[in-house]
Design a protein around this nucleic acid. Structure first.
Length: 312
DNA sequence: AACCGAAACAACCGCCCCGTT
DNA sequence: AAACGGGGCGGTTGTTTCGGT
């Protein structure tokens, strides 16, 4: 017997009309019964696809188009160290951010670090360093140290690429570019608890491993400051790193005391107007209009969404 | 202006959990 | 108790945008 011809399932980018249908459905029934959207013939999308679209793009109060602030970055780093890759959980601490946002942010960050450290490795291991390109361009990003090994693995880099031969103390060397130092400083600034928290980046990082790293910071610091290639912020941070009591400033080693207070898990209040963010786009004439239609929602329709009584 | 690499973003896939039958 | 389906989540991949050469 010929199986009933399945209705074609649509994939790929969503159109405005589809969004509208989805929003109308949620407007009427709430954010549930995703599979019924297809069974009713409203959309040729799977329930999962509908849910994902709603959660990541159409939900009110999303910070679409906003870069992560320094505070958000720090929160992600801290929570990732604590929870691991529990993006949905981490996202509950970041108003307007989705698990996908957090995941993408982290992924980009890891790739960037991998590239930087890889280039650093090249520079430090080469006896005859070639002139570096302007922006450290390089494909075949290769992580070079065990420091971030498990994190790299979780982002699909093969195990043999993670060589144990390079120590974290080589992350920064006298050959490090100012880009590398800047990023490493940023890392130390944002991931400030690395020195004290074994869970950081999912590795068994211990203080003994990071101390040489920091001394290398100081070496690079001197060079870079001498060459006047840092921003004033970086120079300020470098000055602090040069301070022998810097670690004390960060907090006592081994202390479980948080260095800053994490925000509480966030639950979007139902009546808060949608967060509007301008796109980071350089086109200043282009105002963000994506969620204007959400203003038409009844005020109480999101009461059931993100119920504050629910645990994350 | 064209090209290229990196970063950012969007969406799908597969697995797992849980409630229902 | 087992089967099934829906939903949630993390991982991955494809596409677009951005910035530099």
């Amino acid at each position: 017997m010929e199986p009933a011809k399945k209705e074609e399932i649509k994939k790929g980018p969503w159109k405005a009309e589809e969004d509208e249908v989805l929003i109308n459905h949620v407007n009427r029934y709430g954010p549930r019964d995703w599979s019924s959207i297809r069974s009713k013939g409203l959309l040729q999308r799977t329930g999962k696809s509908c849910r994902l679209r709603w959660v990541n793009k159409l939900r009110p109060n999303l910070k679409n188009g906003c870069k992560f602030s320094a505070e958000e970055e720090r929160t992600v780093i801290e929570l990732q160290a604590e929870f691991g890759n529990k993006w949905a959980r981490i996202a509950t601490y970041l108003p307007g951010r989705t698990d996908n946002d957090v995941k993408n942010f982290w992924s980009s960050r890891i790739k960037r670090l991998a590239r930087i450290f890889h280039n650093s490795s090249d520079a430090s291991t080469s006896s005859n360093p070639k002139p570096s390109s302007h922006r450290n361009k390089g494909k075949n990003v290769k992580p070079i140290q065990s420091l971030f090994a498990s994190q790299f693995q979780s982002f699909g880099l093969v195990e043999e690429e993670i060589t144990a031969s390079t120590s974290s103390s080589k992350i920064l060397t006298n050959n490090s570019s100012s880009d590398q130092v800047d990023e490493a400083l940023r890392l130390s600034e944002l991931g400030i608890k690395l020195e004290h928290k074994p869970l950081a980046f999912g590795t068994d990082l211990v203080l003994a491993e990071t101390t040489p790293l920091m001394s290398e910071f100081q070496i690079a610091n001197q060079q870079a400051v001498n060459s006047n290639s840092f921003s004033s912020e970086s120079i300020d941070l470098l000055a602090r790193l040069d301070n022998p009591y810097y670690y004390d400033i960060l907090g006592p080693a081994g202390s479980s005391e948080p260095l800053f207070v994490l925000p509480q898990p966030f639950f979007e209040p139902s009546l808060v107007p949608p967060t509007r963010c301008r796109h980071v786009s350089k086109d200043d004439d282009e105002e963000e209009e994506a969620d204007v239609f959400l203003d038409d929602f009844p005020a109480d329709m999101f009461d059931q969404v993100d119920d504050p009584n629910q645990s994350p």
